[in-house]
Design a protein around this nucleic acid. Structure first.
Length: 426
RNA sequence: GGAGACGUGGCCGAGAGGCUGAAGGCGGCGGUUUGCUAAACCGUUAUACGGCCUUAAAGCCGUAUCGAGGGUUCGAAUCCCUCCGUCUCCGCCA
């Protein structure tokens, strides 16, 4: 959500930001709406001021027994009422239109984000680990999982349709092990607080993190008017909604392991095989709430926390900064971490770390009280996967596969697997 | 699911048609006192929007806000309706 005041103050800067996003300039139209809104506000307030004054005079007139004067004033107020009702309706309509416009415009990229129209404009910032040399043709994760008899898409389709999976035995356990390992790392070493949030949320909550209104089709809803979360970013970020947090409590760092539900409406035909793109997957999410001054540094820190997961798992990855054309709606700057998948012979996204500035905070009305006392300012919010558990499982299967179809378990996961060193045919 | 109670500022809590943006307390901020700390005392302390003024800040004026939305009334925190939420008791339930 954008601040109309900032747009008014510097319309050129706003339009420049939109241009970088590949959007047409909008400042002039927004300012015109805002001016109309203020005109109606002023008319309304003048009428209200007169009504309030007249009402007081009526009280005085009645006290002093001046009935004729009271009646005259009552007639005046009756006339004002129509003006008030009309101005109110128009003011509301224009306000709603303006807010709807503002809510539908994506965040403005940070200055240091590279320009670009699509993913080809993304820039690699670093790379870690060497892809392993295989002396056999590495398989894709679903070939490995199905051969082990522990990954079953056919049965899942019977239960739920396409883009679902049933994991069994040591593979089901591997998913749990990965998540536990990540949570322990983030809570134990990185200072995050583990949270177990609701998975069903209201409209306002989805609006707060900007899944609504624009991305309605990507979401699943349930009866009762609630939405299934597409990421724990939604409930975690909204923890501070409609509240004023003490600055001493910032940065607030929280993490959660939750299922995520996505309709994948625009992804027909993409990644149809395997577990890469599912309607339901689990993810360990990182969310930070900071002061405006802290957010840039926190973004680097959060990205490093996500990278640490892959380092410890021994998975090769590269980190890229998304260009203006490839960033998410709410983001000012995003790092994607892509893990090496030998079966696909490619790097695939396993984490996305974004700094949103005050974009979500405005939508949520999430503020903090500065140490030095006065006023309340909007917080900055950040979110990142730390990391996607389903995709981490894929990466482990493909990177640690053996020629005989078994999979070696990374050292750091063995304590979570009851000491098991290898998943083999059962 | 049934019955009842309640929702007021950063927090607690009064207020029951005009004198209430709202008593009192806590907390915060500024000051006095003090060797330092504590305590005491004095003062101050909501938010949003619009306007005036200004380079800006401050300041001033207005409007709205006592869970949300409607209604009654010249006038609503206060009366009525709807919704949302919280709490208590009963029932059911993992």
């Amino acid at each position: 959500m954008h601040d109309i005041k900032l747009i008014r103050d510097d319309p050129e800067a706003f339009d420049r930001g939109l241009t970088r996003r590949g959007l047409p300039p909008m400042a002039a139209a927004l300012i015109r709406r805002d001016e109309a809104r203020r005109d109606w506000t002023q008319k309304l307030q003048e009428a209200q001021a007169r009504r309030n004054a007249a009402s007081k005079e009526i009280g005085d007139a009645m006290k002093s027994g001046d009935r004729a004067r009271a009646e005259a004033l009552k007639a005046e107020v009756a006339a004002l009422k129509e003006i008030i009702a009309d101005s109110e309706a128009r003011e509301r309509q224009v306000s709603e239109e303006l807010n709807a416009d503002l809510a539908a415009i994506p965040n403005i990229p940070q200055d240091d984000v590279p320009d670009g129209a699509d993913e080809h404009g993304n820039v690699e910032v670093r790379r870690h680990g060497e892809p392993r040399n295989f002396n056999f043709a590495p398989k894709q994760h679903f070939e490995i999982g199905e051969a082990l008899g522990l990954m079953d898409f056919e049965t899942a389709a019977k239960l739920s349709g396409a883009r679902f999976v049933v994991l069994k035995g040591q593979l089901a356990r591997l998913e749990r092990a990965l998540a536990s390992f990540m949570l322990d790392l983030h809570t134990g070493t990185h200072g995050y607080t583990e949270v177990n949030p609701p998975l069903l949320v209201r409209d306002e909550t989805m609006f707060g993190t900007a899944q609504l209104p624009k991305f309605r089709d990507d979401q699943f809803s349930v009866s009762g008017g609630l939405w299934l979360i597409p990421t724990a970013e939604v409930p975690l970020t909204n923890l501070v909604r409609e509240a004023i947090t003490d600055e001493q409590q910032l940065p607030m760092r929280v993490t959660a392991w939750t299922p995520c539900f996505r309709a994948e409406a625009g992804a027909a035909g993409k990644d149809t095989r395997g577990m890469i793109r599912q309607h339901q997957f689990s993810k360990v999410e990182l969310v930070s709430v900071t002061t405006p001054e802290q957010s840039a540094e926190e973004h680097e820190r959060m990205t490093a926390c996500a990278e640490e997961v892959l380092k410890r798992l021994g998975l090769p990855f590269r980190t890229i900064v998304l260009c203006t054309g490839d960033m998410g709606f709410a983001s000012r700057k995003t790092y994607d971490i892509e893990v090496w998948l030998p079966g696909q012979n490619d790097y695939r996204e396993i984490s996305s770390c974004s700094v949103c500035g005050d974009f979500q905070a405005r939508r949520m009305n999430a503020r903090f009280r500065p140490k030095d006392g006065k006023g309340a300012r909007f917080v900055h919010t950040l979110n990142g996967s730390g990391v996607a558990v389903g995709r981490a499982l894929i990466a482990v299967l493909e990177n640690y596969q053996n020629e005989d179809g078994s999979v070696t378990i990374p050292e750091v996961l063995r304590p979570y697997m009851g000491g098991l060193e290898q998943i083999g045919r059962t």
